[in-house]
Design a binder for these strands. Structure first.
Length: 993
RNA sequence: GCCCGGGUGGCGGAAUGGCAGACGCUCAGGACUUAAAAUCCUGUGACCGUUUUCGGUCGUGCGGGUUCGACUCCCGCCCCGGGCACCA
């Protein structure tokens, strides 16, 4: 037999699985389903890195294991292929993004197939395929045609809203009655209810990318992709009303098997706060503010509006700023430099605020602001209090206005200090006096009607008072904002709707889908706010025929001379990359369906019971965005009756990041004298050294001299306590750490290389053996070598090589055979004994591997199989049935070697694939030892051990322990006060002293 | 600043109230070999005594506590990683 050679067996079985559709999933109504899902990759130009196979191997193990346990397993893969990198690469190389994308997909598919994942490739989806994005557009139209019924907490068809308005059972917001409105007015009114709507709003405009970004895509004032500066700019945008679903998305988390930390991240993102809406009166009407501390209302000594608040919008009718400063206005309140009138001061401040990015606002901890010249009345103390504007109040949260309680809020306190505003303490801390501002809970003081009440009760009582006087009410507020859903890009889904000349919008009729991206040779950003699609003039301007209800029409594109056709312009924005990934897991279920995004019966089977995807594994970078957006869409589809449950992903695991190999860095000064890391400034930079390799450059802390750092090979490194030190001189400490893999660092590990050197099975095994799935772990080629050796040993034990004959024997009619050869009586006896001795370890291995896969503890399952393999190594023979069982256990982890060994052993008796063989059963009774080496402690410290039968009684064990010379010497004649016996675990003897 | 997660040999890690360090890597010694590779065997937390055998002490970031018994539970602190960050 040839030695273990993954290069020869792996491609063979990969082709076999593909050609025989071994892992094809079909709906079988009376079989239990198991949906095992990976986060599908963005097919980048770089190809796969070792981070991808981590989660993919974990799900593949589960998928293969569940199949063996009799489940009907759905395990698909696809491509999240729209997106900026492909578009940018296409611009740079002057190719079409679809060409680039298809090339990358080919490469990714090849790479994934080379790892031997058991995907059903017939279900592959590609978000850029019109047959796919036709349904992305369709779902968008579902959102467009849905409104959120707050009372019912549920999305409903817009047609039902129209019916209710028409019947008068629901009153539209605003002054005018429904049946007195024109069709255009009705359409505009309905737009205010739709889950997809347009908004002229300040957005995050990134000039370098030529697009608008969602808040989530902006990090510290720079784009998440590329790190380019982002500025604020008003623009008409499509928004999705995710805020309407805030409560549902929050409550839905409770029933999910997600890690608590992940749920917490989503909860924080949604950001529910309970408090009160309070109305303050001014001479020009009321101002509503939201507060979480209604108990501090008596301490509200001024109001602050966001600079963008409608009351101070100079262009608006709602603006009511006085012409002149009230008498006695301090100069400091009039802006810098002080303006002659409120309008001028406000205008100047708004200009500054608008120009400042989020980041600049955050960096500046100094509070700024301007007095509006307006006064309000505190509704409970009836004090006249001034109204300011300041950019520390955000227009997007609450009402964009706050009541300021400087005594009990740090921000208000800072502002009050700066503008010399009164600070009124209304909460007293329990216990010691606390300095102001005091933000904690305590007891209300100086607040008639709630004096003496603890904070929690004071809040409730104040809400009651406000409600009784109709000047406020309890209110729950959410931090989450509506989702900015349009991008000024070419490589995304076009919006399936047109703009009419009256400024309203009409969706395309379903039969108009897909709306294809126009073929364009020039899809570069325009350098203006116009998206690239504005250049496709033929596509942009169309004639449409409207049909359906006049207040809710649909459009069909027609020839220009069609009677009744009207001019329209297509939407020029495209959807963000999230759109396609919001629902791909549904399309896998029925990928070729031309009439539905997914057949309802098929959806009910795979997503119905148990509800949702059974296991979803992916990176933590999607903890909020993808997972929240996806849940939102799924909730809407659920409300509209298109899916059978509200939550798409019942169980979710985040795999941990894989770092590069551990690196040691040592520093030396210009003369080559080694310097300990403690004496090096940690702010170092990288430069190319004379040998072409990169060299770190930093400064010595003690004298500022330039020092150079370079990598130190492991063999020159020693450990002393926490520190890595130079072997040659233990006083020289080194910098030791693993880094995130990156091209610039040159520590990226390519799975193709690992497969070439060790094979896919070793790659899979090592990915799982490194440590717990969810943990951050450093890569190690030596570790890959370790699991490769394990597979080599397994091969030698069972199959054998020219140097190492196989240990495989089998029993027929009570006689052992080695191959076709009958074994001698003596050999046969040995084989029988060894077979007996391996029985218990084998059952324990089955149990351990089974339970460990169930709890996704793959590293420990692998070590259990290594132990069993080591045991085989100590025997001369291994029974064929046992070998088959063992190989069945390793199949989910290392499917190629398992398939090969299986077929070699079984020969003609083999099933088409080992994956069709059922999962081995274990017997708990066989697992238990019949005698045990029981540890005995004296006062909690190990004193010795006694060998007793597993059936031994407690009193017998105690007797044995007393009789043991080593243990009794520890007792030193002292009386045993009591003993604690934990069955089959240990015995503890408690003595005096 | 707030909220999570983590800290165990030279390294990755195992043990979730009951024998700390499974399994793997590394390193050292040995066997096989003309030699090397591969493979196999033995050892590998620290310190001390004995210097084969064997025995003892310490040891899971630091300090305290609960318990017959703590890596594991509780309190306080230190360090690392992640998330959020003027959200009223």
């Amino acid at each position: 037999m040839p030695a273990y050679n993954p290069a020869s067996i792996e491609p063979k079985w990969q082709n076999f699985w593909l050609e025989n559709r071994t892992f094809k999933a079909e709906m079988v109504v009376d079989r239990p389903k198991c949906y095992v899902l990976d986060m599908f990759p963005y097919p980048s130009g770089e190809g796969l890195h070792v981070g991808h196979p981590e989660g993919y191997t974990a799900t593949d193990i589960v998928a293969r294991y569940k199949r063996a346990r009799g489940f009907n397993v759905m395990h698909p893969m696809g491509w999240d292929a729209f997106g900026l990198p492909a578009e940018q690469y296409a611009i740079k190389t002057d190719t079409h993004p679809s060409v680039v994308t298809q090339k990358n997909i080919e490469r990714f598919r090849k790479q994934l197939q080379a790892i031997g994942f058991s995907y059903d490739w017939s279900r592959e989806v590609d978000t850029t395929n019109p047959k796919y994005y036709r349904w992305t557009q369709w779902i968008f139209l579902q959102l467009y045609n849905t409104w959120f019924d707050v009372g019912a907490q549920r999305g409903r068809p817009i047609s039902e809203l129209i019916d209710e308005f028409a019947a008068g059972t629901r009153m539209p917001e605003g002054s005018k009655a429904w049946n007195q409105m024109s069709d255009g007015e009705k359409r505009r009114l309905l737009e205010g209810y739709r889950l997809a709507y347009q908004l002229e709003a300040p957005v995050n405009w990134c000039p370098a990318l030529g697009t608008v970004l969602a808040n989530e895509e902006v990090i510290d004032g720079r784009s998440e992709v590329g790190g380019f500066p982002v500025e604020r700019r008003p623009m008409r945008q499509w928004m999705l009303r995710i805020t309407a679903y805030a409560r549902r998305l929050l409550d839905g988390l409770d029933g999910l098997e997600w890690s608590e930390s992940l749920k917490l991240m989503q909860r924080n993102w949604i950001g529910q706060s309970e408090g009160a809406m309070v109305q303050f009166q001014t001479d020009d009407g009321p101002i509503d503010v939201f507060t979480t501390r209604p108990d501090t209302l008596f301490g509200a000594t001024y109001l602050v509006l966001a600079p963008e608040h409608p009351l101070v919008n100079l262009a608006s009718k709602t603006c009511c700023l006085p012409a002149a400063w009230p008498a006695g206005t301090p100069a400091a309140w009039m802006g810098t430099p002080a303006a002659g009138a409120p309008r001028a001061a406000i205008a100047a401040y708004q200009g500054i605020a608008a120009a400042r990015s989020e980041r600049q606002r955050q960096e500046d901890v100094q509070k700024t602001g301007v007095f509006t010249g307006l006064m309000a009345t505190n509704p409970v103390s009836h004090d006249r209090i001034p109204i300011f504007i300041s950019d520390y109040v955000l227009i997007g949260y609450g009402t964009g206005a706050i009541m300021a309680v400087p005594a009990h809020d740090q921000r208000d306190f800072d502002f009050a200090r700066k503008f010399a505003l009164p600070v009124r303490q209304v909460v007293k801390a329990n216990g010691a006096e606390q300095p102001l501002p005091f933000e904690g809970s305590g007891v209300a003081v100086d607040s008639p009607a709630i004096n003496g009440l603890p904070t929690a009760e004071a809040k409730a009582e104040m809400c009651r008072l406000l409600e009784a006087q109709k000047i406020g009410r309890r209110q729950v507020s959410y931090r989450i904002r509506d989702w900015l859903f349009s991008r000024q890009r070419y490589w995304g889904e076009p919006f399936p709707l047109v703009h009419l000349q009256d400024g309203t919008t009409a969706p395309l009729a379903d039969d108009q889908l897909p709306l294809l991206l126009p073929e364009m040779s020039d899809f570069k950003p325009t350098q203006t706010i116009d998206p690239p699609l504005s250049k496709a003039a033929d596509w942009r301007d169309v004639m449409v025929l409207l049909s359906g209800a006049a207040e809710d029409p649909v459009a069909r594109v027609v020839a220009a001379d069609t009677p009744g056709a009207v001019r329209a312009r297509r939407e020029l924005n495209t959807m963000p990359q999230w759109a396609g990934s919001c629902w791909y897991y549904l399309r896998y279920l029925d990928p070729l369906n031309q009439d539905h995004f997914c057949d309802p019966q098929i959806e009910r089977y795979w997503m119905g019971t148990p509800s949702g995807v059974d296991l979803y594994v992916g990176g933590a970078e999607h903890a909020v965005l993808h997972l929240l957006y996806s849940r939102f869409w799924h909730h809407v589809l659920y409300d509209r009756g298109h899916v059978s449950g509200a939550e798409p992903f019942r169980k979710l695991i985040n795999q941990g990041l894989i770092l590069g190999e551990s690196e040691y860095t040592g520093f030396a000064d210009a003369s080559g004298c080694a310097i300990s890391i403690d004496d090096v400034d940690p702010q170092w930079s990288t430069q190319a050294g004379p040998d072409g390799k990169s060299l770190l450059v930093s400064r010595r802390r003690s004298d500022g001299a330039v020092v150079y750092g370079r990598a130190v090979e492991t063999q020159y490194v020693d450990r002393r306590g926490d520190a890595a030190v130079l072997k040659a001189d233990n006083n020289i400490r080194l910098d030791a750490r693993s880094f995130k893999m990156s091209k610039s660092r040159g520590n990226v590990v390519n799975p193709d290389d690992v497969i070439q050197d060790y094979g896919a099975d070793s790659l899979r095994l090592f990915e799982m053996f490194m440590g717990p799935l969810e943990q951050v772990k450093p890569w190690s080629m030596a570790g890959v070598e370790g699991v490769y050796r394990f597979l080599g040993r397994l091969w030698r034990h069972i199959i054998g090589t020219p140097e190492f004959p196989s240990r495989l024997v089998h029993k027929k009619n009570g006689i052992y055979y080695r191959g076709p050869t009958k074994m001698s009586v003596e050999e046969s006896q040995i084989a029988e004994q060894e077979s007996q001795s391996l029985l218990r370890p084998l059952h324990r291995t089955i149990r351990k591997v089974t339970l460990d896969i169930d709890r996704l503890s793959f590293n420990t399952a692998i070590s259990a199989m290594m132990e069993f393999n080591n045991l085989i190594g100590k025997t001369r023979t291994v029974d064929q049935d046992m070998a088959l069982t063992f190989v069945r256990l390793i199949e989910p982890f290392a499917p190629h070697i398992a398939e090969e060994v299986y077929h070699q052993i079984r020969g003609d008796g083999a099933l088409a694939s080992i994956s069709a063989e059922p999962w081995p059963q274990y017997d708990d009774a066989v697992c238990e030892e019949d005698s045990m080496d029981l540890p005995v402690q004296v006062n909690g410290k190990l004193a010795g051990r006694v060998v007793v039968s597993a059936l031994a009684t407690e009193s017998y064990i105690l007797e044995q322990a007393r009789a043991d010379p080593q243990i009794s010497s520890r007792l030193a004649g002292r009386e045993i006060k009591k003993h604690v016996y934990i069955k089959n675990r240990m015995l503890n003897l408690v003595v005096q002293g």
